[in-house]
Amino acid sequence: MTELLQNLIDGLGRGSIYALLALGVAVVFGVMHLLNFAHGELITVSGYATFWAMAAGWSWYLTVPLIVVVSVATSLAIERVAFSRVRGADDFTLLLTSFGVHFVVSAIFLLYVSASVKTFPRPGWVTNTYALGSLRVEVFDTVVIGVTVVTLLATTLLLQRTMFGLALRAAAADFDTARLMGVRSNSVIRGAFALSGLLAGIASVFWLMRAGSISPSAGINPMLKGVLAALVGGLGSLRGAVLGGLALGLAEVLLRSRLPDSVASLTEGVVFLLIALLFIFRPQGIVTVTHAERV
């Protein structure tokens, strides 16, 4: 029982980061129907910014806001340089463009920085633990879960209580009708990318604190987790993205812990198998999204 509780806490910690990534994917998908495979590059760029900041002697206190700013700026830059050129194109073109951005960003760091992994110090408290009954809980997991909850609440307030949120939700429900009702497409799309970058920036902070390293292809893993979580939750659903992220994190930790040693190396494969089964029985994901089809 103790180990199960321990696993649940670990899974929620891991799943919280996935939820933040998935939420960023879902926000952009909602307004553009773009499944953004370049989302992980926000972590790559932020990671190199972290490496250089740390090399220059910056502390984590200074680096955390830098990561968030770099992530938002990168997200806006990617929208400006790449996605604004193909706005209104079919979904497949958008998908290919996002793959292109992913490969170009990786190649830039590979060619002009290094193929080697660059490391930087993790904050000292990342591996600290505290006792909670018979459990040993990582301070990191507690902070990640807490910050994720606050971020989700703030995002909900932003979407529910502001004009920008209303415009974003209207665009997600029916982009063309929203435009006819006076929603400015440029503003709402850039806003969506900025929000996506902000969420990715917060996720990046935790991802990089845990990893303590960056490499040109470091964005692949978080991109896969974010996209998968968004798909599992139900593409376009913000609530689903959060649920998908948490479900993915819990599944990974529980499976790695519960599978027999002889097959434990198949954990990732079993996760994908479960996702495939989910899509057989619920192709729409955990949450059903109802909105008008863009034509």
Partner: peptide, 21 residues
């Protein structure tokens, strides 16, 4: 004997819990 994903995993919570036991 613990499993992990090479060059990717940096969160070993599940493995660490088992090892601690």
């Amino acid at each position: 004997t613990q499993t992990y994903v090479w060059a990717a995993d940096t969160d070993f919570s599940a493995q660490v819990n088992e090892i601690a036991g």
